[in-house]
Amino acid sequence: MSRYVIIAGCGRLGSLLAEELSRAGDSVVVIDKDESRFARLSSDFSGFRIHGDATELEVLRQAKADRADALIAATSLDNVNLMVAQVARVVFHVPVVVARVFNPAREAIYRRLGLRVVCPTKLSANSFLAALQEEE
């Protein structure tokens, strides 16, 4: 079934996710406050682009966040992602919300508050440690 997914941040991660989900048949809206970042999206991306700051309620409203099945907060700033994710959950009642958080100390507390958080720093540390162990 096709889902309606909002992605905040069209950097390397955001654009990659947008393309994958769009290819899989989901309808996708990407938000970025820097319009030039939409150039990362390939021509077969069939979703929408919104030029704006996702920390503004008005921009999320414009993205029809109240109807979204999921929101991914994937900007390069932890605090932006944490705020956008919480607003999506509390104000717009988006059922699935995931935030990227680089700082592991921040990640732990927001996980405890019930937010779904992906910490790239921890994930890559784990991969490196696993690689070291394979060598032994």
């Binding site: 920390t55 932890d78 605090n79 944490l82 705020m83 956008v84 919480q86 921040r106 507390i109 508050l113």
Partner: peptide
């Protein structure tokens, strides 16, 4: 001067 920074600072102070 950024709303998201003020939010996170307050939440960390309260919760942690």
């Amino acid at each position: 001067m950024e709303d998201q920074d003020n939010l996170v600072a307050c939440q960390l102070a309260k919760e942690m």
